[in-house]
Amino acid sequence: MISIDLLFEAVLFGILLGCFYAAVSLGLSVAFGLLDVPYVAHPALLILGSYFTFLLSKTGLDPIICGLLLMPVFYLIGIALYRFYYETFERRSSDTGVRGLAFFFGIAFIIEVCLILVFGVDQRTVSATYIGSSLEIGEYRFPYRMLVAFGIAIFLTTLLTLYFSKTFNGRAIKAVGQDEGALRLMGANPVKIKQLAFGIATAVNALAGAMLIIVGPVEPAMDRIYIGRTFCVVVLAGLGSMSGTLVAGLILGIAESVVMMTLGASWAPAVSFGLLLLMLGIRPQGLFGR
């Protein structure tokens, strides 16, 4: 019989785990949720962010600072990726879904192979004072690396929510996802707006990638683990909702943590996809979708 203390600890840790899931899914929430682009290369760019952080941190910089410094670089990568996608598929408007899917899968494989060629297949980690130790409150212990993930998730969600609701460009990005034609009538260029959004979605991956390598070691093929989980969070949230992404991540994290503690870890993946199926059955638009 599981004790209340242990259950409480599982919930608290689930919150940290959920924030981690939310942070790695936010970029996808913008690209897939708002723009409807099948951005399956998202986890590969996340891993790329981790590896760039690994490289930059060798200079002695803190991994979080590395992630922040990499954001502009990833923004430009995102813009270049969208431009290529637009010119090749979207502008020709033929089968953008399937072809786009193939294109981004291709990008993911190219990133994976390049990482293997440059770094080899060994796991890579970074070091920082907060990695490997934990915050002790009474009987409870919380790994600092998960607290960092919690902080990054809250920071990114707040930033993106404010940006999408308070700024002109942010509102335009939300509008382009709803009605591209109407946005064009308002005098805004939908392609440029989408390009901006894609740049933001990819820039978020730089910081989330830094968080990923703080939380655990990474290796080039690790993106495959995150494809299912990130799409699950985004669909569960309701496509395009930033706060929804955080809430969906939390639900998933808490459910997984409690299941691991009670039923056993083998059941954890079934929880993610079971919740997704349940949500699609009773509320297809997701928790916060309209």
Partner: peptide, 20 residues
């Protein structure tokens, strides 16, 4: 006596259960 899925990313929950 437990098994975990091969793609598990964090073991904090499992280690907590073992400790308990």
């Amino acid at each position: 006596n437990q098994n975990y899925p091969g793609n598990n990313t964090d073991f904090s929950s499992i280690i907590r259960s073992v400790r308990a």
